[in-house]
Amino acid sequence: MTTTTTTTTRRRSGDRVRWWTYALLILAAFTCLFPLYWMFVVATTDTATATRLPPEILPGGNFFRLAGLVFSTVPFVQSIINSLIVAGVIGAGQAVLCALAGFAFAKLRFRGRDVLLLVVVLTMTVPTQLAIVPQYMIVSWLNWTDTLQALIVPGLANAFGIFWMRQHISSAISDEILQAARIDGASTWQIFWRIVFPLVRPAAFVLGLLGFVTAWNDFLWPFVVLKSPEMYTVQIAIKALQNSFNIDLGLAMSGSFLATLPLLVLFAFVGRRMVAGIMDGAFKG
């Protein structure tokens, strides 16, 4: 994520930016942000206001009343903790496991390496979700239904992440450095932790972030595996709010807003690095 994203020399030559360029980009940004604003507006108004025409365009004063209702209808604090555990372990775990495997594929020699790498690449194409029935059966045989490890352990394998870390390690670390370290008596394990991982930490960080976001937002698998409300992740808690007999329209919206807020805060701090990471992982010409 170091070289190409911000170099102005590579961009289209410098004719002036027309006003309609800004107009279209502002329209696109507005389109992206408005639904979140609207979520907040409905999450702060009571049912009577939410069903009034013309609709309220400004937030009302009921945010805390509705948030309180969210917390009393479902164990929402617990579901946020569950989501933090699941997404946190998956994000950190993917960053480390993918860096390890990416390092082996990039810099170590062993029999069957190319075939195994091909297997990794092929698994990127097939969505494992289509095998959800046997996945559920395996998780029941392990007695893992209604537990968080049923979400965490399968979520740790990320073929795309291995491929991505392999690319980074191949290009960021020269064989000479590794040979020099070997001559100095470093073991492979020490080389990984003292030389390789520190150098690719930014890439591993972005990978972990993407893993965190994906796990936080995952729906179908937790929906199938989790049964009791204390085990719910936030996404399943939102679904439960939508089902609840409480007729307050703002309730599900308030839950949605509260479930999105942690990611928005995170994004405010690391969004720049996510943008750079996604663009860096993209195809280059």
Binding site: P35, V213, N217, I238, F257, L264, F267, I278
Partner: peptide
């Protein structure tokens, strides 16, 4: 660029509800 990534970090469940 950052604002265009906001929908991506919003969950599908929250998106569907709003």
């Amino acid at each position: 660029r950052m604002s265009m990534l906001v929908p991506y970090i919003t969950s599908v469940a929250a998106t569907a509800i709003v």
